[in-house]
Amino acid sequence: MAKEKLMVTPPPHLRSGETIASSMRDVVVALIPAVIAALVVFKVNALFNIALCVATAVAAEWLTRKALKRDNTIGDWSAVLTGLLVALVMPATAPWLHYVIAVVVAIVVIKELVGGLGLNIFNPALFGLAFVLICSGFLAPWTSKLGTFPGLFDGATGGTPLTFIKHGMEGSSAAPSLLALLFGNRTGGALVEVGAFWVLLGGAYLLYKGIIRWVIPISIIATVLILTYILGGDGVYAILAGGVMLGSFFMATDWVSSPMTPYGQAAFGILIGVLITLIRLYGAPSGAVAYSILIGNAFVPLLDRLFKPERFGAVAAA
């Protein structure tokens, strides 16, 4: 036998086959329905934004790691995913430089400068979005006048669906119907907010593939639903409008920036749900989901320790 070829490594000698790359790729696959919906509504604007964000993300990660003399990690799909998520959470109509700034902040500052994937505290894509939101205050309603390629879609001028929550006008005729929020909202918001249903499809896929667990999305959605009703709003409208679905299934479930134990995840989800509802009703109508998840991210180290599992047998009365 060719003895020199035998591999000697510590056990276990079998692996599940799941890798960072395979999981990230699955998340990208899960976003396909939402991407198609965005392309249908925003046409070439969406295509341009997505291409720009993904290309910027890949280039930024490659350059940063090269400059820091680290391994090339482009192959793990994480930069692609971050770029795609930034494109999806920004409106179709922002100036192109805003996308580039958001992506560079996400990849370079939030992820690579703290050591790379796994060491970041905050969700990179959401931090990029929040940075641009705060710095430029640009989040304009969708109109046919703006965008890199204007005039290609029919957008309404006026507030985003979230302005109606803030003013308690979810039921007014100007507000989108629940059906529109599910399948084809054109009132305003981010690229991904075309329809909650398309995001839910992807969320179901992630659950099926075991990439995410149900605790975080369900606790966020349930909290927003119930608390909005308690505070006198329309709970169903609240969970379908804006970024609740994307935030719950794709952002708050980000492995790196969420707690690892079931109870920790439930506490994390409830915290985020409370923040979303309160910020929307009493604070800024836009960006509530992003801010809430980022605040939640900051609590993760605490939640991991607070909800550390009781080790096997430790509580047994012998």
């Binding site: 692996r15 492995w255 134990t261 599992p309 080790r311």
Partner: peptide, 26 residues
């Protein structure tokens, strides 16, 4: 095909080890 080892990466805190541990450790 069964023995191949991937490169060790930084922990991405996915929690799969926590979920799998029969002793309920992290």
């Amino acid at each position: 095909d069964l023995a191949a080892e991937e490169m060790e990466r930084e922990c991405v805190r996915c929690g799969k080890c926590v979920e799998a541990c029969p002793m309920f450790l992290m």
